[in-house]
Design a protein around this nucleic acid. Sequence first.
DNA 1: TTTTTCTGTAACAAGACGGGTTACGTGTAT
DNA 2: ATACACGTAACCCGTCTTGTTACAGAAAAA
Lengths: 146, 146
Amino acid sequence: MRRDSRLSRMLHVLIHMDRHYKRATSDTIAQMLGTNAVVVRRTMAGLRKQGYVHSEQGHGGGWELARELTDISLFDVYQAIGAPPLFAIGPSVEQPECLVEQAVDARLNDALQEAETLLLERFRSVTVADIAQDFDACFAEHTHHT
Amino acid sequence: MRRDSRLSRMLHVLIHMDRHYKRATSDTIAQMLGTNAVVVRRTMAGLRKQGYVHSEQGHGGGWELARELTDISLFDVYQAIGAPPLFAIGPSVEQPECLVEQAVDARLNDALQEAETLLLERFRSVTVADIAQDFDACFAEHTHHT
DNA sequence: TTTTTCTGTAACAAGACGGGTTACGTGTAT
DNA sequence: ATACACGTAACCCGTCTTGTTACAGAAAAA
């Protein structure tokens, strides 16, 4: 368990739901992701709160998309799972007294901020539908295997 | 212990060594960083291997710079501490069979790769001396407090 | 030469966090 | 009623950084 894989997983799920299922149970999704139904519910709760998916309890219940994939960006999904920290490195303390440390952290935060801005900009500019189309192309390629 | 602070700490140390000490023991440095002498030795071992600092054992020993700060970039220090992972998010598995997952990971890795390239580019373009100069300016500002 | 002061490591505990698991409550169709 | 499926709390586990203790050299000082 090194890197947070929730974003990847949720994108994976959304595309499968759009392409292969009209409705899927947590268990079905869990098998798809190679994980547990509880983990699925836990993670997808964020997507539900944002209105990207809808869930129903009881017999015949499960999850279904509540929006078109064209209306969901990677950034939306990232936010929905709680906008976890992007970087694994960073300054040591919040408000250092030491002026040297302040100078170090300022430069470090500048660089990190630039990278974060770029990354989130990319997330904003890509919709889940874009990735689904990548899959379509790749799938066509794969089946015809020219 | 959320984010890896070794890079920040090593930059901090290098500047202090250049500006305030000709030679410093692990204990002195540890107090400066608010940590432990063993942690200092452990982390600075990487810098020593790369020849950025030099250490001597025994009475009167300790650490000293082995290079000019102008010759050490943030990237050099990042490498010296072992180039730890930069990102806290990422794909779930290495070689997914699922084509959907492959498409997701491809897009995700693209974005991460762009951000990583930018970040490391920034690290390469900034020397520890640059940060030391920031400190000098800030220190002058602070003492004269116009 | 013995003692003191250093570094060099190994070994282990603590704390945080993502993820997996169990258990139980609640709602819904059959 | 019963089976099915989500909602959630509680807990454990693996990993990683960091802190800590312990001990083995090495070098200067007494």
